[in-house]
Amino acid sequence: MISELVSFALPAGMSREEVIAGMREVAPNWRRNPDLIRKTFLYDPEAGQTGALYLWPNREAAERAHDQAWRERIRAKYGSEPTIRYFETPLVVDNALGAIIDA
């Protein structure tokens, strides 16, 4: 499995409510992605950044989801360039599901 950490700067003055509304707007699209195992939305008001932590079966799935068209949408909507980091994820403890997910 691969964890993908995505972050990008928000436009100056964007409120918490606007950020969360944007998250709610795109959540159903991510729910329909058959490769996505989990997505955790992130928001840092002090740094003026948002993003997400994704869990994918492999890096190829992550790269398909965050292709050039996706990057262009982020630039158009938020005026910033997303930063992406990948991490090998050998094990996940999920207390909400009561499970340990082993790659």
Rank of each mutant, 00 (worst) to 15 (best):
S15K: 06
N33S: 09
I37C: 06
E81C: 12
L36M: 09
A47M: 06
R32P: 02
N95A: 12
L36G: 06
I84F: 15
T83W: 03
A103K: 13
I84E: 03
A47D: 15
S3V: 14
P34V: 03
P57T: 09
T89Y: 00
I74A: 02
E72D: 10
I101N: 04
F41D: 05
E46C: 06
K77N: 13
E46I: 10
L42D: 00
V19W: 04
W70K: 07
Q68H: 13
K39H: 02
P11K: 14
A65P: 05
D94M: 09
G79M: 11
A9M: 11
N95Q: 15
R73A: 04
F8K: 01
S15L: 12
R38K: 14
R71Y: 13
T83E: 13
A12G: 13
L55T: 12
Y43S: 03
G98R: 07
R59D: 04
E18K: 10
W56H: 01
I100H: 13
L97E: 11
T89V: 00
A52K: 00
I101M: 07
D44F: 02
G98W: 06
E72I: 04
P34K: 14
L53Q: 01
M23E: 04
V6P: 00
R71M: 12
Y86H: 10
N95S: 15
P28V: 06
E4C: 06
M14N: 08
L53Y: 03
R73C: 02
R64T: 04
R73Y: 09
M1Q: 01
M14V: 11
T40C: 09
K77P: 07
E81S: 11
